[in-house]
């Protein structure tokens, strides 16, 4: 446990010790700010029934932020250490492979969560100035963040996997971007394609991430979504662990 916590602290510290962390936070702030402005303009133009949290997800900004930032957050996790050679000092310390993988994942996920914090402020701000307190209920705010965290953990684990495959951060970004974009477009199929019948339609329905997030924004926690994100995250972490272990039998 001590090793794990030490590594998580180091991972998280790494983002703030270099410029990457601040650039990422700034970029996310810019996009969140734009989405906030859009939301205000829309709310001004016409009254709406949908809760605030849902307003946010119907914009493209959320997906922009998710698809663009997660590869950049995770690219350094393994690739940078392999490139600079510190991977060797790390792996020859008395640490277990699984501790390293989990710590890198946790560190990246925590940083991802930090970049999202301003969103909560925006939503609270709107509520403060609106006359109707029902515009934002605490439950849906919580589930919104749960949804962001779950989707994020899937994308972060995918990024960790991509980063473990290579010693070049650029290649890592490219792999995780391709994986992430692929999964995103697959999940869009149930919206775009004509509603079919049989199992393919069911599968696409099941992986429709946009719909999952709208559910979360309404305050609904569907266990099928939970299972989907948690198992897929574990799957990619398992693959990452296998790649890390492969050093011992290659």
């Amino acid at each position: 446990m001590q090793v794990y916590l030490t590594l998580v602290r180091r991972e998280l510290g790494g983002y703030f010790a270099s410029l990457t962390g601040y650039i990422l936070i700034a970029a996310v702030l810019l996009l969140l700010g734009l989405s906030f402005v859009d939301m205000l303009v829309k709310l001004n133009a016409e009254p709406t029934e949908a809760p605030l949290t849902e307003q946010f997800f119907v914009t493209v900004y959320f997906w922009f932020i998710l698809l663009l930032t997660t590869p950049v957050i995770t690219m350094r996790s393994f690739a940078l250490e392999k490139f600079s050679g510190t991977y060797e000092t790390l792996m020859t310390s008395p640490v277990k492979d699984v501790q390293v993988v989990l710590a890198k994942f946790t560190g990246a996920l925590l940083f991802y969560a930090i970049t999202w914090l301003p969103l909560g402020l925006y939503l609270v701000l709107v509520r403060h100035y609106s006359n109707d307190p029902a515009v934002l209920n605490p439950i849906s705010l919580l589930t919104t963040f749960l949804g962001i965290l779950l989707v994020g953990s899937l994308y972060i684990s995918m990024g960790c996997f991509a980063s473990s495959l290579t010693r070049s951060q650029v290649v890592a970004v490219m792999i995780s971007f391709a994986l992430g974009l692929g999964l995103f477009f697959l999940s869009l199929r149930s919206l775009m394609a004509a509603p079919g019948t049989g199992w393919p339609a069911g599968v696409f329905q099941f992986i429709a991430m946009t719909e999952h997030l709208e559910d979360f924004a309404r305050g609904i926690v569907d266990t099928r979504c939970l299972v989907y994100y948690v198992t897929l995250s574990f799957f990619f972490l398992f693959l990452t662990l296998r790649v890390v272990e492969s050093r011992r039998w290659r």
């Binding site: 790494g14 600079s84 050679g85 991977y87 060797e88 000092t89 020859t92 310390s93 008395p94 640490v95």
Partner: peptide, 15 residues
């Protein structure tokens, strides 16, 4: 690993 202190070639450190 507990019993060795290893310094790799080129001595990689976190800069």
């Amino acid at each position: 690993k507990k019993r060795i202190g290893y310094m790799p070639e080129n001595n990689p450190l976190h800069p």
